[in-house]
Each structure stands twice: as structure tokens, then as C-alpha cells.
Measured scan of single mutants.
Amino acid sequence: KEFRPGDKVVLPPYGVGVVAGIAQRSVSGVSRAYYQVDFPGSRSKAYVPVEAPHSVGLRKAL
């Protein structure tokens, strides 16, 4: 896996977040693995496909 729990990442347009782990989510009846990204200071979460994280701009924070 490219990202691990605890990694600081950037996800446009949300900003800097932390990978909380990998979650299985069902979309249109198909279960897939997603990185769960939490954003400190907020209750917001984002789910990014493990198979294509760069397709939505997910990258490691510098």
C-alpha cells in the first residue's frame, strides 16, 4: 500500500489530512477498499480509492 495509517497527506480541495486507515465501502453493490482520510480540527472525512489515489490528487504532505 502506498499510504499507511498516520501518514500526513494533501487532498485537494480539502487540504492537509491524516490517513486513518483502510475501509471497505460498497458503491453500486461493489465492495472496494478506500483510504479514510481525517482532517484535524474538523469532523470531515474523505474516502479515496486505494487502487487509484492519485486520480483524485491524494499525495503525501511535505
Rank of each mutant, 00 (worst) to 15 (best):
12 P>F: 09
59 R>P: 03
18 V>G: 01
14 Y>E: 00
56 V>H: 14
8 K>H: 11
30 V>Y: 08
21 G>W: 03
12 P>H: 10
48 V>I: 09
14 Y>P: 02
35 Y>M: 02
25 R>D: 04
19 V>M: 04
3 F>A: 02
6 G>C: 07
34 Y>E: 01
49 P>H: 03
20 A>D: 03
41 G>F: 12
2 E>K: 10
48 V>H: 15
55 S>M: 11
58 L>I: 10
61 A>C: 15
4 R>G: 06
60 K>H: 15
42 S>D: 09
15 G>F: 04
26 S>I: 14
35 Y>W: 05
12 P>M: 09
38 D>K: 12
25 R>K: 10
3 F>S: 00
29 G>V: 01
3 F>G: 00
31 S>R: 10
13 P>Y: 09
59 R>F: 06
6 G>F: 03
10 V>Q: 05
43 R>V: 12
9 V>M: 03
49 P>R: 05
23 A>I: 15
16 V>C: 15
49 P>V: 04
15 G>S: 02
47 Y>R: 00
59 R>I: 10
17 G>K: 01
24 Q>F: 15
22 I>T: 06
24 Q>S: 08
25 R>I: 14
1 K>L: 15
49 P>F: 04
15 G>A: 02
37 V>I: 15
46 A>G: 04
39 F>K: 00
43 R>D: 13
43 R>P: 14
51 E>C: 09
39 F>R: 00
1 K>E: 15
30 V>N: 06
40 P>Y: 12
37 V>K: 01
57 G>S: 04
31 S>I: 14
29 G>F: 03
62 L>E: 14
27 V>E: 09
31 S>T: 13
61 A>S: 07
36 Q>M: 12
56 V>K: 08
54 H>C: 11
2 E>G: 10
9 V>W: 02
5 P>N: 06
10 V>H: 09
23 A>P: 02
46 A>K: 10
3 F>Q: 01
60 K>V: 09
60 K>Y: 10
57 G>T: 04
26 S>E: 13
33 A>L: 14
50 V>E: 02
6 G>P: 01
35 Y>R: 01
17 G>I: 01
1 K>I: 14
37 V>W: 01
33 A>D: 12
4 R>P: 14
47 Y>D: 02
38 D>N: 12
37 V>H: 00
49 P>T: 04
8 K>L: 15
21 G>P: 00
27 V>L: 07
60 K>D: 08
12 P>Y: 11
27 V>F: 11
37 V>L: 05
25 R>S: 06
38 D>M: 12
50 V>P: 00
46 A>Y: 10
3 F>M: 04
11 L>T: 01
31 S>P: 08
39 F>T: 01
40 P>V: 10
57 G>E: 04
60 K>N: 10
14 Y>I: 03
22 I>S: 10
40 P>R: 07
7 D>Y: 03
13 P>L: 09
53 P>E: 05
33 A>T: 09
62 L>A: 11
51 E>I: 07
42 S>N: 10
6 G>E: 00
23 A>V: 15
38 D>A: 12
41 G>L: 11
30 V>A: 06
33 A>I: 08
5 P>E: 10
26 S>W: 14
45 K>Y: 11
34 Y>K: 00
40 P>L: 10
48 V>N: 01
57 G>D: 04
60 K>G: 15
22 I>W: 03
